[in-house]
Nucleic acid binder design. Structure first.
Lengths: 232, 232
DNA sequence: CGTGCCCTTGAAGATCTTCAAACGCAGTGG
DNA sequence: CCACTGCGTTTGAAGATCTTCAAGGGCACG
C-alpha cells in the first residue's frame, strides 16, 4: 500500500470529513488493484460491486445495448470514485467500467464497506452527496441529448473534458487523454463518422487541432458559442 | 393531517425501516400541501429544496432547456417521493416538478429533514438506495435515447407507464393518467408530431386506442416486440 | 515491411423535424 | 341553443440532419 494512500482517501468525495484516524482505518481495509488498458473493472451484471477509488489511470463508465452498441456515461480519472453508490445501496452495478489508460485503484468490497459505514455514518451522507452530483450531471446530459444537435453536444463534451482533464498549454487547452472518435461518439450519442466530420470542420476553421493523437482546443470560446447555439 | 399519514410514511421508500414510533415522529414534523393541476412544486433554481411525499395526484419531474424546450425525466404518483436526495445532499434541486393532476403532498423542509436524519441515520441509507435506483433508471433511459429509434423509445415509455400507472381492464391495459402527445414527446426525446404519427399507425394496426383522452394498450406484447426491435 | 487500427471522405438514403393547414372537442358566453 | 374560441390532435409535404455503407489513407507497432 502506498504511503500517500490515507491522504488520497481523505481527499476523496466518498470519505470527505472523516478524521485522520478514521481515514487511516479506512485505508487499511482497502486492497489495491492494478489494471491494464482495456481491463474491465466492473460489469453491469456484477451483483456485488465494490467501491473503487482511482489512484492513477483513467476509466470509462458505460452501458452496453442489447445489439452491442455502447454508451459512455462518464470518464473518470485519478481521485474519482465509482461503484460506491451501488455498493452502499445494495443493488447491482448500474454500469460497466473499463480502463482507457492503465492505472491502479483502492478497492473496498461490499462487506467491508458496510462495516465502515456502520462505524462512520458520514460515509452514507457523502454517498448521497455523490449520487446527487452524478444525478445532476446525467440529467443535464439527458436534456442535451434530447434537445440539442450533434455539434452542440460534441462541443459541450469537449468543454467538459477540458474542465476535468484539460492542461493549459501555449496555443490553447490540451485534452491530455486518449480519446478515439469512437469514444467521443459514444459520449455524445452519435456515430464516429459524424464526430470525425465535425472535428474536421472545426479543425479547418482553426478551432482545434489533433496533436499526436490528443486534441488541442485552440478556441474554447468558439466551442462555447457552438454549445450554446449562439451561431458558431 | 391525515390519520393514515403515518402509514404512508412508513411505506415510503424514504422512511422504510423506521420504527412505528419514529414514523409518527417523522409524520408530525411534516406539513401538508395541496396543489392544483399545473402547479409548480419545485423549481430548478430552488436552492433549498424540500422533501415531498406524494399522497395523491401526479407530477412530472423535468428540466427546461435555454430555448424553452422541456424534457420530462419522470412521472410520479401517490406514494412516490422527490426532492429528498437534493435536500439531503445540500445542493440545489436538479429538476423542476409540476403537477399534471391536482393532489396533495407531505413536505419536510430541509432543516427539518436534517434533524430527522441526525436522529434516524437509516434515512441517509434509504436516500442512497433511492438515488441508486433513480440512477439505474435514468442511465438506462440515457442509453435508450442514445441508441434506439423513436418508435422503440415510445413503446418503452408506454410500457413503463403501464407498469406504474396501468389498470387492467377488459380489452387491455388502460393508462389512467392525462398524457398529451406533447408530454410523451418530451419523455422520449422527439416531437409531438412524430408521437402522433406513431400512435396513429399503432392505432390502425390495433395495438392501442384512445378512449376519452386515455390510452388503452390492446397488445402490450406487440409493443414489447417493437421496444426490443424484434421486428414489430 | 506488412498488418491492424483509427481516421477521413464521398455518396446515398433513412429518419425525423419543421411548417402549414385543418379537424374535433370542450368549455364559454351571447 | 348555438356560435365562438382555444387547445390538443392529425396529416401532408418539404427538407434538414444524421446514419450507413464503401473505399481509401496514414500511422504505429510488431
Amino acid at each position: 500500500m502506498d504511503a500517500a494512500a490515507p491522504l488520497l482517501v481523505a481527499a476523496s468525495d466518498f470519505f470527505r470529513g472523516l478524521s485522520p484516524a478514521a481515514c487511516r482505518d479506512v485505508t487499511e481495509r482497502a486492497r489495491e488493484r492494478r489494471f491494464a488498458r482495456r481491463a474491465v473493472l466492473l460489469r453491469e451484471s456484477e451483483s456485488e460491486p465494490a467501491l473503487f477509488l482511482l489512484v492513477a489511470g483513467r476509466v470509462k463508465l458505460g452501458k452496453l445495448g442489447s445489439n452491442g452498441q455502447e454508451v459512455i456515461l462518464q470518464l473518470l480519472g485519478a481521485g474519482d470514485v465509482f461503484g460506491g453508490v451501488a455498493a452502499l445501496a445494495g443493488g447491482p452495478s448500474p454500469a460497466t467500467v473499463q480502463a482507457v489508460e492503465a492505472g491502479r485503484a483502492l478497492v473496498w468490497d461490499r462487506p467491508v464497506l458496510r462495516e465502515l459505514v456502520a462505524r462512520y455514518p458520514e460515509i452514507a451522507v457523502n454517498g448521497v452527496r455523490i449520487a446527487a452530483a452524478r444525478m445532476q450531471e446525467i440529467q443535464e446530459r439527458f436534456r442535451e441529448l434530447s434537445t440539442e444537435r450533434v455539434a452542440q453536444r460534441i462541443a459541450r463534451t469537449l468543454l467538459r473534458l477540458a474542465r476535468q482533464a484539460g492542461r493549459r498549454v501555449e496555443g490553447g487547452v490540451l485534452l491530455d487523454l486518449p480519446l478515439p472518435r469512437r469514444d467521443l461518439a459514444e459520449m455524445t450519442g452519435t456515430t464516429l463518422y459524424t464526430v470525425s466530420r465535425t472535428l474536421s470542420e472545426w479543425s479547418e476553421r482553426g478551432l482545434l487541432e489533433t496533436r499526436r493523437g490528443r486534441l488541442l482546443l485552440r478556441a474554447p470560446h468558439a466551442l462555447v458559442a457552438i454549445a450554446e447555439d449562439l451561431g458558431g
